[in-house]
Design a protein around this nucleic acid. Sequence first.
DNA 1: AGGAATAGACTAACCGGTCGGTTATTCGGT
DNA 2: ACCGAATAACCGACCGGTTAGTCTATTCCT
Lengths: 197, 197
Amino acid sequence: MSSKGERTRQKVLKTARELFYLNGYNNTSIDDILKTSKIKKGNLYFHFRGKEALGYAVLDSYLTEEAELMNRMFSGSGSPMERIYRLFDSSRKHLSGQGCRGGCPIGNFALEMSDLHNGFRKKINAVFDAWCDHLEKLLRKAKQADELPPSIDTKAMACLMVAVWEGGVMLVKTRKDPRVMGDCIKSLKGIVQAYRV
Amino acid sequence: MSSKGERTRQKVLKTARELFYLNGYNNTSIDDILKTSKIKKGNLYFHFRGKEALGYAVLDSYLTEEAELMNRMFSGSGSPMERIYRLFDSSRKHLSGQGCRGGCPIGNFALEMSDLHNGFRKKINAVFDAWCDHLEKLLRKAKQADELPPSIDTKAMACLMVAVWEGGVMLVKTRKDPRVMGDCIKSLKGIVQAYRV
DNA sequence: AGGAATAGACTAACCGGTCGGTTATTCGGT
DNA sequence: ACCGAATAACCGACCGGTTAGTCTATTCCT
C-alpha cells in the first residue's frame, strides 16, 4: 500500500539511478532527471534534499540489492568455482544484451567519485567489501573441494575476482565487445584448472 | 628550440591532463584549467579549438607515452612473468606514493567517456589494444619458458592481465589501500605457480 | 611593419537550488 | 455521512553562479 508520494519518490530514484549509471553522476543534471521522469522540480526537491541526497539514495539501493544478488549466487547448483564463473558469465550476457553500454554501476561511481566525495566513496567501498566477503566464502568452499591449491589466500583471491570482474566490464564497455569478458573468464579458468592436472 | 607559443601549449596540455586525471573530464571546467595553469582564456582558445580538442590531445599524449612504457617492460631483467608482476607492482608503488588518488588515467577516461563520446572511446581503445599486444608477446615468451601451461590462450590472458590491472587500480582507489593491488598480484602469482608443482 | 601570441570583457545556455503558491489527500469533530 | 482544517504533494518562476565558447583589443617578437 504505497502512498502517492512514495511512488513519485521511487520514480525519481529509479530515473536518477538509470541516468547516473549511463551518463555518470556529475554529467547528469537535475533537469535531465526532471525531463525523463516527467516530475517537476519543486516535487523532486520535496522528496530529496538535493542532488547529493539522490546520490546517497542510489548508492543505498545498490547496497540493498547486493544481498539478494549474492544469495542467488549461493543458491545455484554446481561446484563453487562453477558458480563464480557463472556469475561472471551472467553479467557478460547482461552487458551484451544492452549493447555493452553502462558497464558496472558501482565501478562507474567508484572511478568517478572516489576521489571527489568521501561519503560516496565509503558507500561504494561497502558494496565492494560485501562482494569480497561473499566471494571469499565461496572460494573457501572451492579450496575444500580441491578446486584451488591449498596454498591460495582466499581473501586475496576474492579481491582478484572483483578486480577481474570490474576490469573485464571496463574492457567490454570500451571495446563494445562482450567476448573480452569471455576471454577473461576462459583465461582465469585455464590457469586455475591447470593446477588440477 | 621551443617557441613561446609552444611552451604555453604544453603548459595547457599538462594542466588539462592532470585535472582530467584527478577530477574527470566532465568535471573539470575550462576555468579550472585556466586558473591552475595561469593562462588566460583567449590564449587557451588560440592554441586549442575547444575542450573536446583538449581531450583528444590528452588522449594522444597517453598513446604516445604508451610505447616507451612498454619498451621499459621489455628491457627489464628477469623471466617474462616476473617482468609482468614487476609492472603491476611498480604501478602499485606509484599509486601508493600519491595517496591512492587518481588511479589509472586511461581507465578513468574509459569508464567516464566510452558511452558518451565515440571518438574518445576509439582513442582509449587504441591504448588498451597496445597494452594487450605487448602483454601477449610477453605471455608467449612465458609459455615458451614453461611459466604457463601450454594450453593457455595468450591473447585471452593478455585481456585478463589488463582487466586485473584496471580492476586492481579501481579497488586501490576506492579503498585507499595499496595492499589490495598486492593481493591481486599475489593471488594471480599463486594460481599461476601452482601449475608448476 | 606584421604576424604570432596574449589578454579579458562578453554572451547565451545551463547548473543546482529556493520559494511562494496551488492542489490533492487525510483526518478529527459533529 | 459530511465538513473544514491540517498536511502532504506538487508546480514553475526565479536566483546567483558557472559553463563553454566568441570577439576585439593589445602586446610581444622578429
